[in-house]
Write a protein that binds this DNA or RNA. Structure first.
Lengths: 235, 235
DNA sequence: AATCAAAAGATTTTCGAAAATATGTGTTTC
DNA sequence: GAAACACATATTTTCGAAAATCTTTTGATT
């Protein structure tokens, strides 16, 4: 079979999955937007079977919703879901961070240091109007937070944290592009302080700082989401 | 199209998903067993597309694993996974129970009382050699534990609890059928005590009892799993 | 006997036509 | 005008053949 675009040694289903996933996260597909097979077939260059497979998988992850015999839609966003997701992240990641501080070794410390460094570098070079560099920044940001909790010793907690991150990232992406440089907030300082407390094995302080970091983020995103909803409703 | 078996107003994909899910949980398909499309096609009477869709969904839920270009297998079981899953259940359900005790109203209390009652009834009439009644008992057991934490107010916690239950139920099913009546354990008494503490709004006691209940279960299941592994390895 | 290559076989993955279902439009009836 | 029905269109869902890929067997060579 002739691959129209490229051959990254991945099945078409995998490619379609990755692509649709990315386009939902980055907002190309808006919340609640119907995902029609014919439309995706053209866009992804794949047949029905791999597309349905990709959508089913995304539905299981919570990025799309599927109604029997009526196809798929991008999963909706809501203020309630944002708050719930962020509070649950705090609850789970606080525990995972605590355990990581107790159990983490050199590898864990190295991962924190290096991911924090990479986050800072990407932060310097990111242009607010360049979607690619924003996506890269988000990736670094995720890597840092994953690194913090990566020594919990629990595969299950890791999976839960992954899924909760996925549930929250869609609220952040539009904020990133609309808020070039946040005035009253020094994100790198917050990240640095968390990292410092974690490496000093001060679990209580690290967890407190992480919690505050997420609560602040939740507030910022809530505001941005509400404004976006108000703007969209008036169209 | 002529449905060979029945028409429960569900798509073939849904049917196949429910069936394979049930057969993995109940042990018809053993851990690590390859799931070949041709075999499933015959057994489920569905074509490739709905079957792949069902398997993809089960893979996202963690019941099967998928290797690119090499198909699907039933997800393996392990002592580590069992321990991790049960400890994570304790962590998450303890929080959800605490919140439910704080927030639950009449509906929550009614749900606990009625599901406990139904669990007791099913417990009386269950025959250890009847797979159907064992499945019904497991269903009642699940309903009771879901009821306990059903007033947490967090959709995310509920989803996590659902998924963790799914991750642990496969370890319980074989134990149920091999241990007709557990000698040193009165499960109904444990459930009754948890229910009592929850309804009395004694959060600390309820959480303590629930934790002990799950720890005991984890120990029993660990033992049973180890014995099963030893027996299987020597064949 | 061990090693490797090519062929044969088995299995997964993809495609597009056909069936099943949902949605929209117009017509009739009251 | 509103409800009810039939028809036409749009969309999802399913099927089975064909292509792509992996696995095993065969056979030649050292």
């Amino acid at each position: 079979m002739a691959r129209t675009t490229s051959n990254p040694s991945k099945s078409l289903g995998e490619q379609a999955y990755a692509r649709i996933r990315h386009e939902i996260i980055s907002g190309v597909f808006a919340p609640d937007q119907p995902l029609r097979l014919a439309q995706l077939q053209e866009r992804c260059g794949a047949g029905f079977s791999p597309l349905r497979e990709a959508l089913t998988r995304l539905a299981a992850e919570g990025l799309v919703v599927s109604e029997s015999m009526r196809g798929f839609r991008v999963a909706p966003l809501s203020l309630d879901d944002l708050r719930d997701t962020m509070e649950t992240r705090i609850f789970v990641e606080a525990e995972a961070l605590w355990r990581s501080i107790e159990r983490g070794g050199d590898e864990w410390e190295m991962r924190i240091v290096s991911s924090l460094h990479a986050l800072g570098r990407q932060n310097e070079r990111t242009q607010p109007d360049d979607p690619d560099s924003l996506a890269a920044l988000e990736e670094r940001h995720r890597d840092f937070h994953v690194a913090l909790v990566s020594a919990s010793g629990s595969r299950r907690l890791e999976q839960i944290i992954d899924n909760l991150y996925l549930g929250s990232v869609r609220y952040r992406m539009p904020s990133l592009s609309n808020m070039p440089s946040n005035p009253s907030r020094d994100l790198m300082a917050e990240h640095g302080a968390i990292s410092e407390a974690a490496l000093a094995r001060d679990a209580a302080r690290a967890v407190g700082l992480l919690t505050a970091h997420y609560r602040l983020t939740a507030d910022v995103l809530s505001l941005a989401h509400s404004e976006r909803m108000a703007r969209t409703a008036g169209r």
